[in-house]
């Protein structure tokens, strides 16, 4: 599974970095960046939470 943040949608609300800081990081460009393309399985519940919390629906999970 791959985690992707669409930077055309992301506006840096930072909800994802709050609930899954090991996966998402808010950087100086006010966009969320994915730290590890293929995160550890243990992060999955927090990633799902991040997806559901994102105000812009900017996070996508892509099955590999």
């Amino acid at each position: 599974m791959k985690v992707v943040v669409d930077h055309n949608l992301c506006e840096g609300n930072g909800r994802c970095a709050e609930v899954a800081p090991e996966v998402f990081e808010l950087r100086d460009d006010d966009r969320s960046h994915v730290l590890a393309d293929a995160p550890a399985p243990g992060s999955r519940p927090r990633i799902d939470l991040a997806v559901s919390l994102c105000p812009r629906q900017a996070i996508r999970l892509i099955a590999e």
């Binding site: 506006e11 840096g12 609300n13 930072g14 970095a17 808010l26 100086d28 006010d30």
Partner: peptide, 9 residues
């Protein structure tokens, strides 16, 4: 106005 209200903002 969003950039003024982000965590960084």
């Amino acid at each position: 106005v969003n950039r003024r209200f982000t965590p960084r903002g």
